[in-house]
Design a protein around this nucleic acid. Structure first.
Lengths: 180, 180, 180, 180
DNA sequence: GATGAATGAGTGTTCATTCAT
DNA sequence: TATGAATGAACACTCATTCAT
């Protein structure tokens, strides 16, 4: 049920998994508590379906970022990342918070590695094409950078210079003349 | 009591504050639940004392990293960061996890800004001295990078190429000839 | 739920509010502790609902005591008081016990003044009509007397000469030829 | 230990038995919690010793109220009662509150009956000497009256017309010319 | 499919009591 | 005599989960 998942998503993303009760989700979704268990085996199962759904949604668009010019592709990726961060901060928040519960929720491990492998290898290829020195290292660094920017933005929100960082990254990685 | 704080520390760092119960901490520490309240006024008070204690321990050494050569200082900082990450991963984990409860715990805000302001302005000065282009932007980027590396390492632990990242960073920021 | 309120009523009336636990009430009512909170927001809320319910039940009949002859009305009141005391001793007990927690429960203050004002001013008018000397003083005295009889009866129950007191009061206040 | 008993008395009288903790009493008395158990077997035992002590203190003075003129004796008693109420309201409060825990504290039963028998039979003799009609009934009534006045005063305190009641009682019982 | 009454294990916290010192 | 660290059972309250309807 979409209503339930939407309610669950926004509540859990903003309050955290532990602090969000089934009752609260049901109330927000406008259904009874009991009904939740027709769709989900448990609170944990709901979380899993939530996360997997959100990941798929996120992955769909990745194809649209491709361009013939690798620098443009990289720029698209960077822009897409900042756009996501701005538009769906709750999604990132949820993912990041869950990441730290890897020992409790088995599925989080897959999610985390998928995400990381996903962008790292893709970035590496891209940087190779741009002739960046040490593209493998630089790709890992960039992946970490994205996570770092996300975490800082999620914590201090409007105080974080998101636009400035975006421009800086684009200039640094996509515009700069590389050393021969 | 040290036993209690140690138990609390590692449990909260690995599971989060909400998911860690007083009963669990007491069990892990080998004491009764009741005793906890001889030392701490509440669960929240325990957390606060935990964090403040950990911060004091961590901050003592920062003076020892300074050198006349700013590149060496920067290298010391990078090395110190990776050393900390390796030796006290729980500390970083706790800080990072708490960071996401900034709305619930007032003292976390101070902690987070202290940490971030701390390194950002210091790094900026350093990068200026090395004549890095756009030192302000680069410093913010580096702060984000540290957070990102930390978060990824804390999640996938031994699978993360920590040493590789350390060398890469040192080479990139401290050894490279800068463009005139 | 009636079962819960009945159990709570008699337990609180006989032991007091603090000494009666939610667990005890639940056990007595034959339900789970958790269920209590489907009906009442808190232990205090339960108490309040209990008291308000009991007061409404008790107050309904006051109109039926009126008569054209003030002496008969007074006699009706006295009889009604003793009847209540015999039939719903728990109610009186609860009210009296709560009276001593006036500082803790705001609603008790209303209850207590309502009860006292209620009877005192009514009695005064009545005694005036019977030409009792100093009807105001006598009314206050009578109100105190009612409370005193109630408290003594509630404590020693069957050992208290309730019938004797009733007859004595009626003779004294309703039958006696007053001094001209 | 006098310090302990004094502290316990005033705390329990003002807050009630349940709401007063051993820790609080110890703190107020300036001794350790552990020490309390050198003097008293339990919290309940402390209460019992407290009450018995207070009763003895109260009883000592009764002899001083006697006079050759029974009307004067009665007046002394009434005055003594109001004086006590004014000077040691906490004592009365404690006694009255305890009275309602008769099922929990065995010793309260003795206390209550002792108190009641005490004054009732004494009052009866007195009223007989003054040639009051139905001295037995009138004595019981007066005992109830004392309790009632006490309870009302203890609840509404300064709003209660204590002085007015005192004068009224004295006039009514000690000054009035009785019908031949 | 949908409800919500009902459960029971769990939460953080309090407190009378014990005991090694 | 005196302490206070330590205990464990109790407290009010929460919540994921079940089930008769």
């Amino acid at each position: 049920m979409k209503k339930i998942m939407d309610a669950a998503f926004s509540l859990i993303a903003s309050q955290g998994y532990d602090a969000t009760s089934i009752a609260q989700i049901a109330r927000e979704a406008g259904v009874s508590k009991g009904l939740m268990y027709n769709y989900f085996d448990s609170k944990e199962d709901l979380l899993e379906k939530l996360v997997k759904g959100a990941m798929n949604e996120g992955d769909k668009v990745i194809g649209e970022l491709l361009s013939d010019d690798p620098k443009v592709t990289l720029q698209n990726i960077i822009k897409w990342f900042f756009k996501q961060l701005r538009e769906r901060p709750e999604y990132w928040r949820l993912m990041t918070v869950l990441t730290f519960r890897i020992d409790k929720f088995a599925f989080v491990h897959d999610m985390a590695t998928h995400k990381m492998k996903g962008y790292t290898s893709f970035l590496k290829e891209l940087l190779e094409k741009i002739n960046f020195p040490n593209p493998a290292g630089e790709a890992k660094l960039m992946a970490a950078l994205f996570d770092g920017i996300a975490i800082q933005y999620l914590v201090i929100k409007e105080d974080y210079p998101l636009a400035e960082m975006e421009n800086f990254l684009i200039k640094k990685y996509c515009k700069k003349k590389l050393i021969a």
